[in-house]
Amino acid sequence: MKDSQMDTGPLLPDGLFAGLTEPAPGTLERLHDRLAAAAAGRQLIDVSYRTVDSPLGRLLLAATERGLVRVAFALEDHDAVLQALADKLSPRILEAPSRLDNAARQLEEYFAGTRRSFEVPLDFALSRGFRLSVLEHLPHIAYGSTESYADVAKAAGSPKAVRAVGSACANNPLPVVVPCHRVVRSDGSFGGYLGGPEAKRILLALEAA
């Protein structure tokens, strides 16, 4: 996250505190890690997050106590995504990688082609109603295959809600892990993707290999 200078208040004349202003390099990082570990131990973190590098660019992973709650592409602006999580879930958000180690490892295996399904607890707290029904269906689309928006509408119990399937996919809070990229147009063209069309192409090509 970017720093902006806050009010530093009255400055001492003569640089009297020059020696106090800079902690040793790495001190704040070390204190941050210690804080994250202690806060996790006392169950004070409502949303933990970390980032991972992937063939689709940097991904943000966020989890609640219940499970993975958000995967976000860089395109979505990670700072904005974290602010939205603060607004919708809780502002008790800390970068605390350990809770996400498992999800990060599985994603790495997936992108390496050695994993075909994810076994991480998911928290669908950000989705409700028909969109939730759509998201719950998506993991049933097998690795390497696709369904049309109309197929998914039927499977989710509202055959006429083809457009609503499109918006459910476009608002999928857990892309890649919940495979909305496996939903394509009836004519076989890819359709839109919240990570951009190139990301969808990469994922379908990976799974076709």
Partner: peptide, 24 residues
């Protein structure tokens, strides 16, 4: 827009709080 994520509070104010703690 509500309060920023707590992570941001740490990154914005962590250094000042450390300075104060060291002085005191």
């Amino acid at each position: 827009m509500g309060k920023p994520p707590f992570e941001r509070v740490v990154s914005l104010h962590g250094a000042v709080v450390l300075r104060v703690c060291r002085a005191v």
